[in-house]
């Protein structure tokens, strides 16, 4: 068994980065490493949004994006489910009606379980209804049509969109704006960020969505994982700088190494 050429450097980099991440996570968990996250306005606004919906007696809508639990966008779905745990806890605390809409069938049972357990942990299992988590359609535009229908009929007061979004991002954000909902959105799909910035009150940009679970739960494992990302980023920034200098000087050793 051997590595496919073109992946050799990638695999070794993955091993080194994994060790670095797991080490920082371990040290943080053991209390030997203190992690403090900067304030993320979008995440802080979630409580405000749910509180406002409660005052108005209108529902809160949450979408974990339209990606599945496989493929390169899966981490965004998992990050969204982490935030959903927090949203469920807050909805239970304020007795706000929560509507979670789902596009991917594989995400449906996971979201149901997250919400059910969230209500159970908050001591309000009765709040979980069959229509709390709704599968709408696995067809992208049928899903968004369903969401817009819910917005119009139920006049949601808070619209939370965290996860991987594509063309439906603006439809959902503008639909939320039309019913006057306070909107918090976040995605790591770069091409959709401008739409969220234009149409929402708060936007989580790129990796901020991965910090959501850690930020909201203050769980040490997640905090350590977020801190480790910064170390990896510093290493990458250094290699970009060194690589740029080397290439400028006519030496492509680092470039060749990276594509090995």
């Amino acid at each position: 068994m051997e590595l496919v050429p073109g992946n050799i450097f990638g695999v070794w980099a993955m091993v080194v980065v994994s060790i670095c991440v797991l080490l920082v996570v371990y040290l943080t968990k053991e209390g030997k490493f203190l992690v403090k996250l900067r304030r993320i306005a979008g995440l802080e606004a979630i409580e405000e949004a749910i509180g406002r919906a409660t005052e108005m007696g209108k529902p809160v809508h949450f979408s974990p994006g339209i990606a599945d639990v496989t493929g390169d966008t899966a981490p965004q779905t998992f990050a969204a489910l982490e935030v959903l745990t927090y949203v469920t806890t807050l909805s239970a605390k304020y007795n706000a009606e929560l509507i979670v809409t789902i596009r991917m069938p594989n995400v449906f049972p996971l979201a149901q379980e997250v919400v059910r357990q969230g209500y159970l942990a908050a001591g309000k299992p009765d709040l979980f209804q069959e229509e709390t988590v709704r599968f709408l359609s696995s067809e992208q535009f049928a899903y968004i049509a369903g969401v817009l229908g819910i917005f119009t009929r139920q006049r949601v007061a808070a619209n939370l969109m965290i996860g991987a979004f594509w063309a439906e991002s603006l439809l959902m954000a503008e639909g939320g704006s039309q019913v006057g909902a306070i909107q918090v959105a976040g995605t790591a799909n770069m091409h959709q960020i401008p739409f969220f910035v234009a149409a929402c009150d708060y936007t989580l940009i790129g990796e901020e969505i991965y910090a959501g679970g850690a930020y909201l739960s203050q769980d040490k494992v997640r905090l350590g994982s977020i801190a480790s990302q910064d170390y990896v980023k510093f290493a990458l920034m250094a290699s970009i700088l060194v690589g740029a200098v080397m290439m400028t000087a006519g030496n492509d050793w680092l470039r060749v190494l990276f594509v090995k």
Binding site: V21, P75, F78, L110, A188, G213
Partner: peptide
């Protein structure tokens, strides 16, 4: 990097929120 760290947490069972 964020996606990688999240995947790693899931792979090693450190992330159980889902």
């Amino acid at each position: 990097i964020g996606g990688f760290a999240t995947s790693l947490r899931i792979l090693f069972g450190l992330e159980r929120g889902y």
